[in-house]
Design a binder for these strands. Structure first.
Lengths: 211, 211, 211, 211
DNA sequence: AATGAATGAGCGTTCATTCAT
DNA sequence: TATGAATGAACGCTCATTCAT
């Protein structure tokens, strides 16, 4: 009995995952507004109505995707902050997480970047807060290193956090829409390093530096 | 007769502008997908059938907004490339244009950033090309300075261009959605400088530099 | 110009009427819950969407029917109260109005009796008040005749009003569902008289009266 | 074995009753069309699939409620006709049954009056016959007393039956929707008497009678 | 008997677009 | 040019009903 119930619960959870995965795929392919519930159901290989058995509505599906994945980012920053004392390492961990995720599951990253970040203007309170927390968290980390004299203290750490994620995001977008292609020499690792190093050191050659 | 025709043409152009302005406002307020043609017409103070005299459909309105404004950015980069030999000046001109525009007409910038740049995934050929040209143009400028030894030549200039615009875009987004507020000390000018300087020099203090 | 606008306004009003009439017919035929918007549109000979041009939703159509017709009943009672001093005459005017209306437009009466009275349990404030006003108004009239000694003053006039309308309503229902048929001798006029007389005098023969 | 079967049968019957009671409650609360099977199941504390073990469909539940209760009314009229020779007593028994039932189980009465009696227009053959039988039965009783000279023989007894039940029904409706409240002096008994007496004697004072 | 996952037809509503005036 | 009535495809969502366990 117990076992049966557990099994059923597990099967149920699996079905939900199936729908979620289908949704991620379809959102990435056609965009949230352009896709229909039936696209999701078809892709998941389930009946139309079943989607509504698991989710209140289309928006709720997107919310679930957001919560599951944005939460991960939250944790990654926390872990990075704890596990290393080097700022460079911390930033690299964040970049690595996102770029690796993009390798493994580009659809999810795309939905996060395009469908959620894009609609951030229209986010309501609880979601907006969750969204913002990631930036605040990185800003905290930066602030800490400012106070240790490693970073220019005159600058707003929040703005720096936005700057950092902005670079990352648009580069990702470039990859996603294929207007930006990794050069022949660029390994994923070299891109990770470049992103972090450029953020920390800038792109000028030391030769050309005056100030 | 001639005059009358001109007048009429001018009046027509004015009406078109009226609708375009209304569209910008409404797109910014509710988002492209969430707003209706009638919202635009109401805001413009015209009958909604009239919108179809001036534009083929809803998409065409967004296209017009895109073309008019993205074209400006194109020109700004060209001008900047010509009018100064200093890379810093060139970049500053671009940043200044965008941030000033955001001061003067935040709705336009919002629509460009949120409704167009973010949905670039779904752009079709001609629009996508126009979109991409801006990045290529900036990349060219950067490549030129690489060849002059001012910038690290090992890096992909296109990627650097994406990085630069990405920072700018997300900071703008932060301002637009009010999760990022200009600090009390931050003048618009100081933000412009910081963006360019950080891109060129990074954010590390010289004291903490080892390499 | 003026004329053209007026004409258009009139044509519009006519179209609305067309839809309203179709709705009355369809509501009467299949019942409010069982009919679809498309039934109304088809019956009216207009496009599906036009119904929504004139009415917010299905409920709003029923509301309009209610308001237009229930308001008439209101006025009829008022007029009857003013134009005659005889209670019998007043009641007869009310009965006559309803039964005549039923002859002329049985569908409307049916919708009023079945769809609105039935859902009276679920009426919200403003509609419920309008609904109730008719009963209150008749109760006032009865109360006045009580105070003149014509009617038994020990009884609740409101309850008497409900009793009166209840008789009328169920008889109408009987006719509507054809479980009650006017007998061969019964003219409409005789039924009107019977209803009023029975209400005032009861149905007992004087011979059998003891009290 | 026998016993076990009986027990099981009893348990089954009990479950069915549970669902039926829940249905009555929910139909009364939200209306037949506005409630879902799951509302009934939830209220009954069972899985909603179980509802389909006991009933073919939603309609069948309503039918069962109708049959169980309308059948009682049938019997009440029969009993009244047999047990007393006085018409007043017979009518009083019917009124008493209904009003007492309304005291004890207002939900059932409401469902009978609002969901069934009011939608009688849409009843199909077998149900319609059952519905109608009650009126016919009362009409028979009245006809009998007409032939004994107690009641005005010129009137259609069926119409009188409708008139009588109509009064009763709308007064009940008034109580159900709380637009009619029992006055402070009105006991339930006085209302029963009034209904019957008014039907038999009318509401005019003898002083004002001319005919 | 009991559960609740699964199905899919049905329907209300929206809204871009067309068209008559 | 200007209006807004008219059209109807599209789609989100509901929920009665079936079915596997």
């Amino acid at each position: 009995m117990e076992k049966t119930k557990k099994k059923r619960r597990a099967a149920t959870e699996e079905k939900k995952r199936l729908i979620l995965n289908a949704a991620v795929h379809v959102f990435a392919e056609k965009g949230f507004h352009r896709c229909r519930i039936s696209d999701i159901a078809t892709r998941a290989g389930v009946a139309y109505g079943l989607v509504y058995h698991y989710f209140d509505n289309k928006e709720a599906i997107l919310n679930t995707i957001f919560e599951e994945n944005w939460g991960l980012l939250d944790k990654v920053i926390d872990n990075a902050a704890e596990q290393s004392s080097e700022l460079r390492e911390k930033l690299r961990a964040v970049v690595a997480f996102i770029l690796d995720a993009h390798q493994l599951a580009p659809d999810i990253i795309q939905v996060m970047v395009i469908e959620i970040a894009r609609s951030s203007k229209f986010l309501k309170k609880p979601k907006l807060d969750a969204y913002e927390r990631v930036f605040s968290r990185l800003a905290e980390v930066l602030a800490q290193h400012q106070s240790q004299g490693e970073l220019d203290s005159t600058q707003d750490p929040k703005l720096l956090a936005y700057s950092f994620f902005g670079s990352l995001e648009l580069i990702l977008t470039g990859y996603l829409i294929h207007t930006l292609q990794p050069g022949t020499g660029d390994t994923l690792e070299s891109i990770k390093s470049a992103l972090v190093d450029n953020f920390l050191n800038g792109i000028r050659t030391s030769a050309s530096r005056t100030s």
